[in-house]
């Protein structure tokens, strides 16, 4: 007979990993399903020279038109856009970045770890634009306090209201010549600057900072390659009681049971799953007003010869 877990967690990245980390500490049994395989840093990668790659580092043409951070070195880490296409209106392009691996996008994020403030949460009150969020910075601050030490966020405390200080590893590293020039230019215009605030360590991911302790507790079971197709409900209560999932490699359909279901499969995948399951949409706003992690597509670069350090002076 299949085990019934206390909590079924769909997704293993930032949200799924944090849920597992937190609940297993309280002795709550968790089953984690992820659509992708488990990455093995010892087995799955190797150093290669760029000219050994089939496309000299340009990347396989057409494989990732929207994933701007995909390179020919790491293109096997992202969800393949040809195998998983999506559409949008010509006037409303959307760059959907997906990672189907245990650990999700925490394997590949830029580590920027800035606290948001009430300038964002209460933006309408501040400047009249947008809508106020239903939460305040003060509601979220205790959770920032918990996460920053886990992710070893480094930064410099400044007392800026727009980017509140956090629990940082003090960053006293010297600035590069180009940053010193930038800071001087900003100072001359009355613009304050600070060090970047970012998670540190060799890897700042769910798979090395969140999941290991959850697994060590004995209360977490991780099943990779499990593509959840639907959240199921108890016909008596109408409450979620598990999920139907498909084994990615064999296409075998299976079902897992739990008392509670947590959906943490990224903004759009979670929404799609809820829509496909006919759940959590009594308000009719499911699928609207979404806010996904976004990425920068185009950067303008300039070379300032006199700002070059000696290290790369060629």
């Amino acid at each position: 007979m299949a085990t019934q877990y206390d909590v079924l967690i769909i997704g293993s990245g930032a949200s799924g990993g944090t849920v597992a980390y937190t609940l297993t500490k309280k002795g709550i049994s968790c089953l984690m399903l992820d659509a992708g395989p488990v990455i093995n840093y010892g087995r799955d990668r190797a150093f290669k020279k760029v000219y050994e790659l089939p496309y000299r580092g340009f990347g396989t043409p057409g494989r990732f038109p929207h994933v701007t951070q995909a390179s020919e070195f790491n293109e096997n880490l992202w969800a393949d856009e040809k195998q998983n296409p999506y559409t949008y209106g010509p006037e409303d392009p959307y760059y959907w970045v997906r990672v189907r691996l245990v650990g999700g996008k925490t394997l590949l994020w830029g580590r920027a770890s800035w606290r948001m403030s009430n300038y964002e949460f209460k933006c309408k009150d501040h400047d009249g634009f947008g809508e106020n969020w239903p939460i305040r910075y003060e509601d979220l601050a205790p959770y920032y306090d918990k996460v920053e030490p886990i992710f070893r966020v480094a930064g410099r405390k400044e007392g800026f209201a727009q980017i509140p200080d956090g629990i940082f590893l003090e960053d006293n590293s010297p600035d590069s010549e180009s940053v010193r020039r930038f800071n001087a230019a900003a100072r001359a215009r009355g613009i304050a600057t600070t060090k970047s605030r970012r998670a540190t360590g060799a890897l700042a991911s769910s798979i090395n900072l969140l999941l290991p302790s959850a697994l060590e507790s004995g209360y977490l079971t991780v099943v990779p390659n499990a593509v959840v197709s639907k959240i199921t409900t108890d016909p008596q209560t109408g409450l979620a009681d598990g999920a139907t999932f498909i084994d990615r490699r064999s296409h075998r359909e299976m079902h897992a049971k739990a008392r509670v279901v947590v959906v943490g499969a990224s903004t759009l995948e979670s929404t799609r799953l809820l829509l496909n399951s006919g759940l959590a949409n009594s308000s009719g706003v499911l699928g609207r007003y979404l806010f996904d992690q976004f990425y920068v597509k185009d950067c303008v670069e300039a070379i300032v010869p006199e700002a070059r350090g000696k290290r790369n002076a060629y």
């Binding site: 150093f47 290669k48 020279k49 760029v50 000219y51 070195f73 790491n74 880490l77 060629y314």
Partner: peptide, 13 residues
């Protein structure tokens, strides 16, 4: 630093 070497990820299954 101009060795053109990077970490290549094999297809993961």
């Amino acid at each position: 630093s101009a060795g053109g070497v990077g970490t290549y990820w094999f297809p993961i299954d």
